[in-house]
Design a protein around this nucleic acid. Structure first.
Length: 428
RNA sequence: GGAAGGGUGGCAGAGUGGUUUAAUGCACCGGUCUUGAAAACCGGCGUAGGUUUAUAGCCUACCCAGGGUUCAAAUCCCUGCCCUUCCGCCA
């Protein structure tokens, strides 16, 4: 959520900044609502003042033993006027809130112009894709050859876009999660957290998935109105909803391994083969709460933490900065990290790292006490995948395949694999 | 799942319809005193919104949340959430 004061007093400036996203702000409507709001709010508060004063006088008169009937008579009219004014005020405020909630974050000044993902700008590249002197087998067939990647059974027990992992592949998947967690905890200074995988609507509102993107979520049908998490970002970031943290606690850096559930509405027919796009996947998520002046630097560091995982795994990747037309609703600036996928002969997204500045914090009222002013001020929030585990598994299988059908296990994972150095095909 | 009791400022805790502008204590901040500190004393001490050039003043709202009753609600009523204790069940 943007600062309502800013958008009300300077709608043209905000509109200009949002142009980079290709978002058109309805300036005329904002101005009209604001004018209306101002008049009604002043009227309402004056009436409240009048009523409060008179009610107090009634109390005093009663104590003094005077006849209060005429005083009560006089306040009757105010009561009705006030009730009407309050209804009107609520209506205007709700209309404004609906509008404000639908406005995306302002992109950072260094976010490149552009309409779609084709306009994203590569900022760096790491590693050289291998050249294969044998036909590349994709992860689906590789997984099947180990008897460890089974989409048909996932479909049977649940529906399409669910998978069953078994044996060495399942263990490799777990090894990746452990390796990522340990690296972020031991080398990057994150605190491990374990959180609920089911959240309420307030939390989803806080991080910006609601009210606009409900169709992407799995909603439980019981009367509590809960949802499965689409990312650990939601429960982890909401740890500090409605909290005021002390300056000395900052920066707060948390890492969380969780399943993610996405209904992927609107993506039917895309990436239907393999692990790229599933309804359930696991992810190690990095979340940071920082002082406002430190968030730009924190984003660069956070991207580096995610890239470090790929580098330790020896997986070629590149980092792109998303253009205005491609960044997410709540984000001010986003870097995507893309890993090399040999079977597709291209880089595919494996991490998305964003700074939300104060956009999420304002929705959540996540604040810290600024030692200079002594006042609570909004924090800045950031998060990024460090990394998506299913896609990393895919990348390891494909990039480390050998011509004999084996897959070498990257050295950093071997301690988590009981020392095993390769996955071998199952003999039929 | 059953029964009972609760939810008030950073913390403790009073307040059961109108002199409440939420008492008091602790903590915290500033000051006086002191060589310095402690103690004592004096003052300050929430959040959000509005108005305004103003972080000055003034106004409004907020005592778990949402409704309601009333001229007037921390206080009365309804619903929900959460906590505590006991019983039952349970990995």
């Amino acid at each position: 959520m943007l600062d309502s004061k800013l958008i009300r007093t300077n709608p043209e400036t905000v509109a200009a900044a949002l142009n980079k996203r290709g978002y058109t702000l309805d300036v005329a409507r904002i101005k009209a609502l604001e004018e209306e709001r101002k008049a009604i709010q002043i009227k309402t508060e004056n009436l409240q003042n009048e009523r409060n004063t008179r009610s107090k006088n009634i109390g005093k008169a009663k104590q003094a033993g005077e006849d209060v009937a005429p005083l009560m008579q006089a306040v009757e009219q105010i009561k009705h006027e006030l009730a009407a004014a309050e209804i009107e005020l609520t209506k205007v405020q709700e209309a404004f809130d609906v509008l404000l909630n639908s406005v995306p974050n302002i992109p950072a000044t260094d976010v490149p112009e552009g309409k779609s993902e084709d306009d994203n700008v590569e900022v760096r590249r790491w590693g050289m894709p291998r050249s294969f002197h044998f036909p590349i087998i994709d992860h689906v067939d590789l997984g099947a050859s180990f008897g460890g990647l089974d989409f048909d059974t996932g479909t049977k027990i649940t529906s399409s876009r669910f998978a069953v992992l078994r044996g060495g592949v399942a263990r490799l998947h777990r090894a990746l999660a452990q390796f990522m967690l340990d690296t972020h905890i031991n080398e990057h200074g994150y605190e491990e957290v374990n959180v609920p995988f089911v959240v309420n609507a307030e939390s989803l509102y806080g991080t910006g998935q609601l009210p606009k993107f409900e169709e992407d979520l799995f909603k439980l049908t019981d009367e509590r109105g809960l949802y499965l998490i689409p990312t650990a970002e939601v429960p982890v970031t909401n740890i500090y909803r409605n909290e005021i943290v002390e300056n000395a606690q900052l920066p707060i850096k948390m890492v969380c391994h969780s399943p993610c559930f996405r209904s992927e509405a609107g993506s039917y027919g895309r990436d239907t083969r393999g692990l790229i796009r599933q309804h359930q996947f696991e992810k190690v998520e990095l979340v940071q709460f920082v002082r406002p002046e430190e968030s730009d630097e924190a984003l660069e560091e956070l991207v580096g933490h995610a890239e470090a995982i790929l580098q330790k795994l020896g997986l070629p990747h590149r980092t792109v900065i998303l253009c205005g037309g491609d960044i997410g609703f709540s984000s001010a600036k986003t870097y995507d990290i893309e890993v090399w996928v040999p079977s597709q002969n291209k880089y595919r997204e494996i991490s998305s790292c964003s700074s939300f500045r104060d956009f999420q914090a304002r929705r959540m009222m996540a604040r810290y006490r600024n030692p200079e002013t002594g006042k609570p001020e909004l924090l800045h929030t950031l998060n990024g995948s460090g990394l998506a585990i299913g896609r990393t598994l895919l990348a390891v299988l494909e990039n480390y395949q050998l011509d004999d059908g084996n897959v070498t296990i990257p050295e950093v994972l071997r301690p988590y694999m009981g020392g095993q150095d390769a996955l071998l095909p199952v003999k039929k």
